[in-house]
Simulated scan of single mutants.
Amino acid sequence: MLQLENVCLQREGRTVLRDLSGRFPPGSLTAVIGPNGAGKSTLLAALAGDLPPASGRIVRAPGLRMAYLPQISALDRHFPLQVHEVVALGLWPQLGPWRGLSRAQRDQVQAALHEVGLAELARQPLQTLSTGQFQRMLFARLILQDAQFLLLDEPFAAMDEPSTQDLLALLQRWRDQGRTVVTVLHDLAQVREHFSHALLLAGHAVAWGPVTEVLQPAPLQRAGYLLPALHAHTLRGHCA
């Protein structure tokens, strides 16, 4: 579905990730992990198409439907919208700028809200939502996007434990439906318990494969988990 071929990524002229090659197994849950500055969010932006590689290439299957959820801190929570209106944006490719929702589409919105436990808050303004409720709403929008490949950047940051467990269960359902999910995470216990694969970054791919192989002491130490954090500015080498 999606493959990286010797990808090198830069931001503001600085190399953040280099020499990255591999593929995400279809129908897998992959956790992208690594110390601060390892290039995790940069990678997701590139996979989503928001950041072109400085060198190498990212190959996507023709017609691949993708959805991208950036970090919640990057989202504006002050738009004068209600919860159901934000969720309905997941149907945007079907609607375009001028068409209203059909009865069937309104039912889809309500069903997505019900699946994430927000059915009773459909008419609430965004400003009234807690962090957990806001993230649940964004997951409802993802449901309506019906993507084959989902990119989630720290989706459980600052969330309460019940909300986190509910959304982790939703990821499991997506996997069971054959969807591929790539998620930036910091909690290695969550990775061990809920994810099948992991990509360990430290400016390059330290390890990439089944979780049981990646979360071993040696690769974690090489990535800086047991040593002072390795930041991107310490990278040697540049994009070709």
Rank of each mutant, 00 (worst) to 15 (best):
Q82E: 15
Q190I: 13
F24N: 01
A38D: 12
D176I: 00
D19F: 01
E213V: 00
A67K: 01
R173T: 13
Q145T: 06
T164H: 01
L185Y: 03
M1W: 05
P62Q: 08
D176Y: 00
M1Y: 02
V16E: 03
L188H: 00
G22T: 13
A54D: 04
L185K: 09
Q190H: 14
G13H: 01
Q172I: 00
R175F: 05
L201E: 11
F156D: 12
G100P: 04
V206F: 02
A45Y: 04
M137K: 04
V59M: 09
Q165R: 15
Q221K: 13
V83W: 05
W208M: 12
L138N: 07
V211S: 02
V214P: 10
D76F: 08
F195C: 11
T30E: 05
H233V: 10
L220H: 03
L121C: 08
L129F: 11
P217S: 10
G224L: 00
G39F: 11
F195H: 08
L201Y: 08
H84V: 11
T164L: 06
L230C: 11
P125N: 01
P70E: 13
Q127V: 14
L151R: 01
G117A: 00
P125E: 04
E193K: 14
D19H: 14
A74L: 13
K40W: 04
T30P: 06
Y68G: 08
G90C: 02
H186P: 12
P26Q: 14
R103W: 00
G96N: 04
L20N: 00
I72E: 15
Q127W: 12
S28F: 06
A169K: 12
L235R: 15
G209R: 11
A232L: 02
T234N: 07
T183S: 15
G39L: 10
T15R: 13
L69R: 11
A140L: 03
G37T: 09
T212Y: 00
Q172L: 11
L4R: 04
P93S: 06
R192N: 06
L152C: 07
